[in-house]
Nucleic acid binder design. Structure first.
Lengths: 227, 227
DNA sequence: ACAGGCGGAATGAACATTCATTCCCTTGCA
DNA sequence: TGCAAGGGAATGAATGTTCATTCCGCCTGT
């Protein structure tokens, strides 16, 4: 798997809309069966094109999937920023982004699961570790969610947990629930979505009231493990 | 020199420990590459046995993986019940189970990812939908986590969210964090684990104080989507 | 008529599974 | 105690299938 052909995308406008059909077929099938579980022949059939035609548009299977991932991932990020206002309070910005992830997953189940598949593959893990990601106007800066966490911690409205933990607390439940929804295991109504998102906020927010267990600081655990 | 006997181990009890070696190799490889990404030949090599030997112990690749899943899933559930006391308060029981998942994942990364892979495969989804699961002393009753949620809701210490949402809020972040840890993307210390688990509780617990946004009820959303 | 996109058969590699053979432990017999 | 035959376990080359990729003749738009 090599990385080239960044922009051979549209030699001429678009002959049929074969490229699009191939992309959608790939997303749908890989989201369900995974990379190794979806042969090129299956993609060709689903797209309604000949197997050879796929190679007119993509160098090989690896390139096909990687290019689709970049495209889908960028579109996903763009979606999150729709209507996003940096001037809003931390809680509102947080909920906007989380709701965006939720809605994206509900409206684009195949893309959502495709992204999941990719991130959980060895290739995806490498990508994350090397922080390559895609550049879709992305200047290498933090994702907005990370900015929200930083701002929230500065204002002491968000817990002083490691970034990875905050991300897990925010996104973990959403991914979990969206996957269950896509699989048809549950039916989500708007109230449940709203309350779940509020619960995600409860998880990361720094309590200021008195009716809460104190958060234990790292130094507490210097010598012992459990009270 | 001698005549019989140092090892009565062979014919019946454990021929070598090949079966074990095959199982461990399968878990390790599938946890990393997925079902379709790990050929039998690779499993045989990793286990240090001939490819044909695997078929002495398992009917085919599907059976191999399914049997391993049952075994691993049951062992996982048993682990969670270690030291579990139904007489404890809801919060303590909840934290015990969540911590158990966390620790299991950290100590058994291959098994943890194997279970993940399985649940996210088409087969795993089907299994979940049909609620077949394995019966390892499992009398078909609810998982302890579900019992805790039910008890907590009865006592009004846990939010009145659908079961699937509560499970997502509890397990989602843990799965997320453990996977990051296994991938080597983060380093977890005990304090972070403790605080993250506490945050999971914050997510599902029903506030009794006054400094909290009210939880919106379903009827609120009957006609509109966003205030 | 022709240039180039297109489908799908052709190709060689890789895969799951089988099977003839080898290996090694047990056991009957001298 | 020594020895060799018997039999189940193990092996890896053989088999038939499926895969990714290539190739070539057809066909459409111009």
């Amino acid at each position: 798997m090599n990385i080239h052909s960044l922009a051979a995308s549209s030699t001429q406008t678009d002959p049929g809309n074969k490229r699009e059909r191939i992309i959608h077929a790939t997303i749908r099938l890989i989201s369900e069966y995974g990379f190794h579980g979806t042969p090129i022949s299956m993609i060709a059939q689903e797209a309604g094109v000949g197997a050879g035609t796929i190679y007119r548009y993509f160098k090989d299977k690896d390139t096909l999937v990687l290019e689709i991932f970049k495209q889908v991932n960028c579109a996903f990020k763009q979606t999150l920023l729709h209507g996003y206002d940096e001037g809003q309070p931390v809680r509102d910005r947080f909920l906007h982004l989380c709701r965006g992830i939720f809605q994206y997953g509900m409206k684009n189940p195949y893309e959502f699961k495709f992204i999941e598949q990719f991130y959980n593959s060895p290739y995806g893990t490498t990508l994350r570790r090397e922080k390559i990601f895609c550049n879709c106007g992305d200047t290498g800066q933090d994702l907005p969610l990370e900015q929200v966490f930083a701002a929230g911690q500065a204002q002491q409205v968000i817990k002083a947990l490691p970034l990875a933990a905050l991300i897990a607390l925010a996104i973990g439940p959403i991914v979990f629930l969206v996957k269950d929804s896509i699989a048809g295991l549950i039916q989500l109504d708007e109230a449940t979505i709203h309350n779940t998102l509020a619960a995600c906020w409860d998880a990361i927010q720094q309590e200021t009231g008195t009716n809460r267990q104190p958060v234990v600081t790292p130094s507490f655990f210097a010598t012992e493990e459990k009270p």
